[in-house]
Design a protein around this nucleic acid. Structure first.
Lengths: 277, 277
DNA sequence: TAACTTCTGTAACAGTAGTTCCACAAATAC
DNA sequence: GTATTTGTGGAACTACTGTTACAGAAGTTA
């Protein structure tokens, strides 16, 4: 009695789904399986379609009626709660023909785990504490494909604390931007291969002015590492054409989360103001 | 609104329960909360009492009707499914053996796995094939915290194929940018909560001009979903202050990888030119 | 652009669920 | 042991939910 889960059935259909049917599918998958246990009207409202569409969708999944469909969901939920271990086992063994996407995302997940092993927890904590201090100015910059990471970190840190300044990577302007740098100031630099010469130049200048550099880079380490006081390397290698920078963003988000925690008293006010607007 | 769980309410009653009422209680607690999500008759059969007893029991618990009781159970179940994240979040804050960073990254990894389950492989593949076609112009845009994702995707797609155009989110300028849009053109939009009204406006315009929208959003689905032909939702919830957008970047990278593969013959030339410079 | 096909929501319909009433059974008090 | 109270299940009733038919909208093709 090989029972396919409802979620699996949805993925099977996928090509045959109409636009409204797809919205129903996404709604259900979005908070699975609870929306399906609600009455049709509620399911419909939650997915932003009409009740009739839900009924058609359920019929398409191969159920004779909506109550029938709900029964299947309940049984599925029962299975799941009974044997969490067994479920994990069958789930792992189940989809032998993994799709490109799930394969890629699984790889991405593994890179995250490897990164956790690569970075020393103490160093991470120290960096976050330094970022949480508001006495010193904090500079941010990134290279060709990493500048947006600096921007993302900047946008969040700005909400948490004052004294954040973004540097743009162009050599011409960077000199001007750096005249205010004081000894002991903090600078977070992103740099992955093919390493940006302009970034190296910025790092040299910062180093000369005795700023403390936090370097976020890949496993092969940017040449900036020689000037960095703190270095947080990430696993980015994919074995494909492009390296994966999502790991760097995850690290940036970890930093944001930790600094938010450390500075919660001041951060909560600022964030509250944002929510209000 | 009293926020007590149903199980707690049952324990409160305990003394006042009659013999049949107690059987109902034990039945429900026995496989909680699934039996309560079944129709009354089934609940009654499962507990070995009559339907009327179940109704009385539910009334005794303080619910105005059986559907009301079921709604409470569903909400409870929803809370419960959310809490592992929150538990993990608070756990990392305490003096635990795992470091903040590795805990956070492990969570990020899990979100990736969940996202893989959320997106149907077929839809992903279709989107990639559409992006690989070079006949149609492809527009890209993102909201407040996601614009950089559009930028990242743009930068890579530009290397793979011609006909890429980036839209900036400001309503004033977007109208001008959209005058060239032709029916059947493709548009990739990023939007996560708190959803950007300007992005919705852009989507509306694109929809009116019969462009095909690919929406990359979070599990709660941006309102743009109503106008989207393809929708790729990501698990972003962290149980913390900030949602996690690294998943979206990972998805974007998956798209880049797949489109590169599909268009390898033309992409390799262009990339080769970049390497050489 | 027009004809055609397919899809989607509205509204009426039908069936089944939840609810209530009543008679009977248990338990307790006298 | 009888009278009274309380609890229980069967059966009728009502209301709501799932279903279906239809007409209009959207999309597709020539």
């Amino acid at each position: 009695m090989e029972r396919r889960t409802v979620a699996a059935r949805i993925h099977d259909l996928d090509a045959e789904l109409t636009s409204a049917g797809r919205r129903a599918a996404h709604g259900l998958l979005g908070n699975y399986p609870l929306l399906g246990l609600a009455p049709v009207a509620e399911f419909a409202a939650g997915a932003g379609v009409s009740a009739a569409t839900i009924v058609r969708f359920v019929a398409q999944l191969g159920f004779r009626s909506y109550p029938d469909f709900q029964r299947a969901l309940r049984e599925e939920l029962e299975e799941r709660s009974k044997s969490p271990l067994q479920r994990a086992a069958t789930q792992a063994a189940g989809p032998s023909e993994t799709s490109f996407l799930s394969g890629f995302l699984a790889q991405s997940a593994r890179r995250l785990d490897e990164t956790a092993a690569l970075i020393s927890p103490g160093e991470f904590e120290t960096v976050c504490r330094r970022l949480a201090e508001t006495k010193r100015t904090c500079y941010l910059a990134g290279g060709r494909f990493t500048d947006f990471l600096a921007g993302y970190l900047e946008a969040h840190l700005r909400l948490i604390r004052p004294g954040i300044r973004r540097l743009d990577g162009r050599p011409a302007t960077s000199a001007d931007q750096l005249i205010d740098v004081k000894a002991g100031d903090l600078a977070v630099l992103f740099d992955v291969r093919r390493y940006d010469p302009a970034m190296l130049e910025v790092a040299r200048t910062l180093s000369r002015r005795k700023a403390h550099i936090v370097l976020i880079t890949d496993e092969w380490l940017s040449p900036i590492a020689r000037h960095a006081r703190y270095c947080l390397p990430c696993r980015t290698e994919t074995g494909r054409t492009w390296d994966a920078n999502a790991v760097l963003l995850a690290l940036a988000e970890a930093i944001i989360a930790r600094v938010t925690e450390l500075n919660w008293s001041t951060a909560s006010e600022r964030i509250g103001a944002l929510e209000g607007d």
